[in-house]
């Protein structure tokens, strides 16, 4: 089956500065894909290339199986996007004007749909106010409405909750999940790891222009959790676990062994198979933030 979005060895250099070194991604239909990275990691540049705004130095982008370049952007008509630190708006036009313009851009979007979307993002009372008077949160809400207007198959959101209050952030998370449940693919870029952890099915971690990890959220969390074991023969257990594929680290900590890289059930099953029966197993569950720190630390 064709991926909704696929990039192959995407690279972008601005003069001597390498903003994106090598980004290969694959986003499948109906999933929420989290794109994580610290500020300056190359997230916005990567999204800029996907949206036809920046010419890649090298590499390939495919949307719905079709190649996308700044000269060939037709597949983008099936994409809705919110891009940049703030939604892109013209300050002397109203929220309603922006949605009407968006409807003209994509060739659809009735007055009723515009009214419904304004209501959905909580901008009904501000519909005819100039967007130059909007707060950052209001701009983001309008940007979201503009991205959703033509019911896109793929939604690309770059820091969508930027400037929003906690209530607004929660609403956006719920909106993303409900869109995904209805079949919309969502590509969500954020440096808010907690936000991504709550909504994403899969994530890619980007640092210094390179993808460091790309997997299901649960797999990454399991892979980075620490399994503490008490075993009768530590030397034998260490030797056995070091031979187990997927194990990242095996360390002695007093009377316990600390193992990372695999879920506790897999580790226990392997030890039992080798005749080592653990007397105690506990797991310290990491969150995505710890996974992120671990992955980026390992890269450094």
């Amino acid at each position: 089956m064709t991926s909704v979005l696929e990039t192959q060895h995407l690279r972008k250099a601005f003069g001597d500065v390498l903003a994106v070194a090598d980004v290969s991604l694959r986003v499948e239909r109906g999933e929420v894909f989290g794109f994580l990275g610290p500020n300056g990691a190359g997230k916005t540049t990567t999204i800029g290339m996907i949206l036809g705004l920046i010419h890649p130095t090298a590499g390939e982008i495919r949307l719905f199986g079709e190649p996308v370049t700044p000269q060939r952007t037709t597949p983008l008509r099936r994409v809705g996007s919110l891009f940049g630190a703030q939604a892109t708006l013209i300050p002397y036009l109203s929220a309603y004007d922006h949605l009407k313009m968006t409807a003209q851009l994509y060739g659809g979007g009735s007055a009723k749909r515009i009214t419904n979307l304004l209501d959905q993002v909580g901008l009904t009372t501000a519909a005819h106010r100039k967007t130059g008077q909007f707060s950052t949160g209001m701009k983001q809400r309008l940007g979201l409405a503009m991205a959703l207007l033509h019911a896109p198959e793929l939604l690309i959101l770059d820091e969508p909750t930027n400037g929003m209050d906690p209530e607004g952030m929660r609403e956006v998370r719920n909106l993303i999940r409900s869109l995904a449940n209805r079949g919309t693919t969502v590509f969500l870029s954020s440096h808010l790891l907690h936000e991504i952890e709550q909504v994403a099915d899969r994530v890619a971690i980007l640092n210094r222009g390179q993808i460091l990890a790309q997997d299901r959220v649960q797999t990454l969390l399991a892979g980075s959790s620490v399994v503490r074991l008490r075993v009768p023969n530590m030397d034998l257990a260490v030797a056995s676990l070091r031979l187990l594929p997927g194990v990242k680290t095996v360390e002695r900590n007093g009377t316990h062994l600390e193992v990372t890289g695999l879920p506790s059930a897999t580790i226990a099953a392997h030890l039992i198979q080798d005749g080592i029966i653990p007397s105690e197993i506990t797991t310290t569950q990491n969150d995505l933030e710890q996974v992120f720190l671990q992955v980026t630390h390992e890269a450094v």
Binding site: L51, L53, P70, V79, F83, G84, T88
Partner: peptide, 18 residues
């Protein structure tokens, strides 16, 4: 001014040829 506002990105993101 549309460079300052980055509003050229709106039609480009909608697949309109430059």
């Amino acid at each position: 001014q549309e460079y300052t506002w980055q509003s050229y990105t709106l039609p480009v993101r909608a697949g309109i040829p430059r």
